Amino acid sequence: MENYQRLEGMVAASFTPMEANGDLKLTEIDKYADLMAKSGVTGVFVCGTTGESASLTTEERKLILTQWLKSAKGRFKVIAHVGSNCQREAIELSKHAAQSGAAAIAAIAPSFFKPSSVDELIRFFAPIAAAASNLPFYYYNMPSMTGVDLSVVQFLKEGKKRIPNLVGTKFTHNNLMEMGACLQLNGGEFEVLHGYDEILICGLALGAVAGVGSTYNYIPSVYAGIFDAMKNNDLATARSLQQKSIQVVEVIIKYGGGVRGGKAIMNLIGIDCGSCRSPLSSFTDEEYDSLKNDLKKIGFSGIQK
């Protein structure tokens, strides 16, 4: 991992633009990348939960990553999520990420046949990480989606012995005690990328310096303000901005959560991401009208449609 640098600041979990029939709309990523470059993000996290990775084919995920790398033009880092229930598919995606020029890879735990121990999780990830041994590898911990709630501290401790390029975890969990333990492990050896947007202030207070979030796509100034306020020990400002974040999250939960509701917001601000793939349903005209009203009520700006 030559010239490896730790992540800091905002990493936007990218949505996957799609046509009305569900096909990929790769041409929209150029415009999307320009928006991300202007927003001040450190990087984008491609084909994760927000990007509907579980609803994409392996070939589609390769095409999406390739386009993001092209569209980024070196203005921010592109991190490839390569996780899959199929280890061999994840290895293939990992190799592709390394060959294509991704800055790092991450993988979520398998969620159908689940590992029952840290050792099983390490054995699953080791060949995936090895397939991109020149890139930093992050364990994407999200028990609410995977049902895998194994000790992340233990994984980092034992995993580093068998996964040399393991650098940390994307910690999408509200167990802040465990998060703090990960941050303190071995004198701060591992990166902990904060995952839940609505409690970013908590992760930063514990010592995290980077976050990965879907709402960073459309309210980046709120999160940039939180990062700056926490650096300056301005808790009043940080709390106020975090409350604005919570208001937006409350709205997207009303419309089916961060993927479905968030994708609709992207459409409203001028990035044509289309609808989600089945089983997530398309937004109706009535829902769009209601969403606009809900966003206006909380002072959300930037609606173009």
Rank of each mutant, 00 (worst) to 15 (best):
R277H: 11
R88M: 11
N267Y: 10
T237R: 09
V212L: 11
Y288R: 13
K297M: 12
V259C: 05
S151C: 10
L35K: 14
F137G: 00
G22T: 03
I201Y: 05
E89T: 15
L56K: 09
N165G: 02
H81F: 06
L35I: 14
C276L: 07
L185V: 02
G9M: 08
T27H: 15
V248N: 02
L183Y: 01
I29L: 13
E191A: 04
R75T: 09
D285G: 04
G168F: 00
A130P: 00
E60P: 06
I269Y: 12
T237K: 09
D34N: 15
D272Y: 12
G262N: 10
N175Y: 10
M36W: 10
K170W: 02
N267L: 07
I253K: 13
Q5K: 15
A181E: 08
F125Y: 07
F45N: 00
I271A: 08
A103H: 05
K170T: 01
S133R: 03
F137Y: 01
L166Y: 01
E287S: 04
S214Y: 10
Y139I: 00
I201F: 05
A130S: 01
I29P: 03
S144H: 13
M177N: 14
S94R: 02
S278F: 13
T284R: 06
F155K: 00
A102L: 10
V148P: 01
M145C: 13
E59A: 14
F155W: 00
K62I: 10
V148R: 02
H81D: 07
K296L: 15
D294C: 08
G188M: 09
S301Y: 15
M177E: 15
E287Y: 10
